[in-house]
Design a protein around this nucleic acid. Sequence first.
DNA 1: AAATATTGAGCAAACGATTGCACAGAATCG
DNA 2: CGATTCTGTGCAATCGTTTGCTCAATATTT
Lengths: 343, 343
Amino acid sequence: MGVTIKDVARLAGVSPSTVSRVLAGSPRISPKTQEKVRQALKELNYHPHAGARSLVTGSSKTIGLITSRPIVQAFASTFFSEVIQGIGSVLEAEGYNLLLSTALDEDAGREACLEMLRSRHADGAILTMSRLDDPLINALVAEKRHFVLIGRPADREGRLIPDVPYVNNDNVSAAAAVVAHLVSLGHRRIGFITGLRERVYCYDRLQGYRKGLEEAGISYDPALVVEGNITQADAGLALERLMSLSDPPTAVMAGDDVLALGALDAALRMGLRIPGDLALSGFNDTPLWRWIRPRLTTVRIPMYDLGVMAARMLIGLLKGRPSCPPYVILPSQLIVRESTTGS
Amino acid sequence: MGVTIKDVARLAGVSPSTVSRVLAGSPRISPKTQEKVRQALKELNYHPHAGARSLVTGSSKTIGLITSRPIVQAFASTFFSEVIQGIGSVLEAEGYNLLLSTALDEDAGREACLEMLRSRHADGAILTMSRLDDPLINALVAEKRHFVLIGRPADREGRLIPDVPYVNNDNVSAAAAVVAHLVSLGHRRIGFITGLRERVYCYDRLQGYRKGLEEAGISYDPALVVEGNITQADAGLALERLMSLSDPPTAVMAGDDVLALGALDAALRMGLRIPGDLALSGFNDTPLWRWIRPRLTTVRIPMYDLGVMAARMLIGLLKGRPSCPPYVILPSQLIVRESTTGS
DNA sequence: AAATATTGAGCAAACGATTGCACAGAATCG
DNA sequence: CGATTCTGTGCAATCGTTTGCTCAATATTT
């Protein structure tokens, strides 16, 4: 069925070794021979057998792409999509293919991921959206695998786990910047609707929220923070809860655009005017939502670039480049729109 | 580095063949031996080398997932995400892994896809969102690959290409149902904003639109159809064009929720009331948008199930099941909401 | 008890590619 | 011109598994 290197060798009148060397671009092959071999390659439409190759070289030219939470959520926003593109653009140029982890639930999923990486002999992995004290990170470290995290490796207390390469955006300072923006508009009671803090990015944005308050000299009020699932329904309930406080917020920042949308819906239902009665901000600048009115003040995350950097970093690791930096933090950008300023 | 079948054999005091047979569940191994081998497997934490396996068996237990248009768009909506989950849920249970095609542009992308399938010796492929006369389909057929299309295989004139297994939703009748719904509300001038008809699903929805008109005894007016890219900006322009006709539509159906959102934005900007001045409908029931006001009348596509069925069908093909149906059409569902009925 | 059937396990040959080593023939040197 | 260095190519081992065939040992049958 498949045409092998021997077939090519026979047609070109050389040995398999020579064909292999031509393929590898070895300099010790004469131009004449090279030409003959290339002819034969084209003529037979030869394609190397990745399995056989990986058997002898030990490298499968394959990278695992892993999401530690169910893919459902991972793909729901455009985050994953953009990140994948960034990763793909780098990996393709380097001849790597992406192996997707499609596990359903978190525990079985972890084993399935590891199994995939092991049996497919993946050269490395890229992880996204990890949790505090993420078991998968621990497992990967224990197996001494090459991998790069998109996000921030954090232990149970949110402290940075050393020696894990990662690419992240500056969630803390970005969240603080949102607070500063709201403060500059005169707000002092600022609510925060966020996903569960076991997700590192949620944790960090919460830290940024607190940092922003502190820098503005506003004391932190736990009653103003509502933590829940990243769904619009939950965000709506969260907003209702915040607005029913005896001293309700005049501004609410959401830890994600999805949450902001749910909150927006609830606010409008409650008859609140945005931003007249309540200023509202999101996070992530989900592209498709730029058309929602009022337009959402939010933070733009360089998702594509996160993917690119992660892939580059991983390639660096695989090639054993010593100059490879242990981590990269990409800046994000506050995008001010109507939902806070009204114009 | 890696622990091989020989290591296991040595520890268990048997030959590699025996270990292999235990792994394969061969019945001709005594319980005692099986137990010994299993012990050794656990103890050494053995994992088979997929490459070596594929070398001798010819199967790589790998499925390529291919999007013929740039992944960008493919991932932008939740379509791809849900489909992937469906696919994954089936493939994982069958021991297959997903290889993702990450090509950037359409032409180089096609070659990269094929190259991936060939050199990785993928057992099969699942294709999404094909075009009329899609070159990739032709290539896959020419290479006699096992694959299933999510969508409908169509030639240049939109005719069904025979002998290509596919899973599709009933775009034609769904679009017709939307028209029927609008007609039942009293509309006679119904506009249609759609993506380029070179995408089969756009083409089919256009056919459904025409069919719906015909069934209602309304003659087709090309001026009421605007075809463009699937972006909100284009949809906005399309709506403006439709509304500036001397005899503008009283209802507009969009071929996609993204388009509906762009049209909605434009309509509101033009001071139109929805559905008072203009009824508006979408397509796909993008989950995150159920919270947008006014809520969008749309069509729900069973995306997850499309993935499941495609994967099942592919597995069937790979196993050479003769009972495997050549195609499946899943029903979609009209979801009536405020944007057409007002309540 | 001898002949035959069954069971359980090993031998060894693939599968397709890479690569260290050997070795011709040509080129270069003294 | 003989000795030495290059160049270009082939040989053969190797990577980790699977699997057809062989064959001992055991079980079953006459």
